[in-house]
Design a binder for these strands. Structure first.
Lengths: 122, 122
DNA sequence: GTCTTTGTCAACTAGTTGGTTGATAACGCG
DNA sequence: CGCGTTATCAACCAACTAGTTGACAAAGAC
């Protein structure tokens, strides 16, 4: 089991939670402290701190230090890991879908050919 | 909370499990029955059936009917939902990263300017 | 120094997840 | 019909998750 495997586990699991996806969405616009991030939610500061830890363990986020504040920053690179995984299989699945279309086209053509054959025979 | 919200929850959660990602990977190559899919894993058939149910609930997979067999088919469309979500925020985060670079460049230029000023003053 | 702000750590709880086994349903084959 | 195959359903269990509260650490402000 490769290293990127475990990270994929963490990243997908992290983004499966709507609160955490919202945190990511907000951090995409600007860095923020834990308190600022927690403010809009009906949830304790500790809960948000935990969510941020999950995002950090997944490598989606890093935390700096500014006096007693702990500014949170979104890391873009990790997204690539996911996108690569997704694209690989989406592509294959779509190719298979295209091939199915091709097979159906072929069948149609064969039927046309048979019709032509019958017409030629008549 | 929109409808796609809940589906994002399900899709990300589904792909957070390595067994389920492996199932998706194998289904990208060809459709398969539950038994065929279960064979390589050290796990009961029922467990795999449950995993497939999770993938189905997320819309990643559909199940057909062939006598007592239940062929499983990968659906490519749902991947787009994820890709769109990811790309939106990855892009913003990268833009911010670029802007940071711009700011750093600006600072460097200012320092150069100051150096130039000092040199001019000397 | 003491007080306030900002955040983490620790312990607990309710609900969910990933697995197990056993029973059951649906279908094809003698 | 009864029998084997293929898969789902149901009940159970251990481990994890997402939230809570309370205590505490670290840093600035007084």
């Amino acid at each position: 089991m490769s290293d990127g495997m475990e990270q994929l586990n963490l990243v997908f699991a992290a983004l499966a939670d709507p609160t955490r996806r919202d945190l990511v969405a907000r951090l995409a616009c600007a860095d923020a402290t834990v308190g600022e991030l927690a403010e809009p939610y009906d949830m304790s500061l500790q809960a948000v701190s935990k969510h941020l830890k999950v995002l950090e363990d997944a490598g989606l986020v890093t935390r700096g230090k500014d006096a007693q504040r702990r500014p949170v920053h979104l890391e873009a690179e990790v997204f690539d890991l996911m996108t690569k995984w997704i694209e690989r299989y989406r592509q294959r699945a779509e190719e298979r879908y295209q091939r199915l279309d091709a097979v159906l086209d072929e069948l149609t053509n064969e039927q046309n050919q048979q019709r032509t054959d019958r017409k030629d025979a008549s």
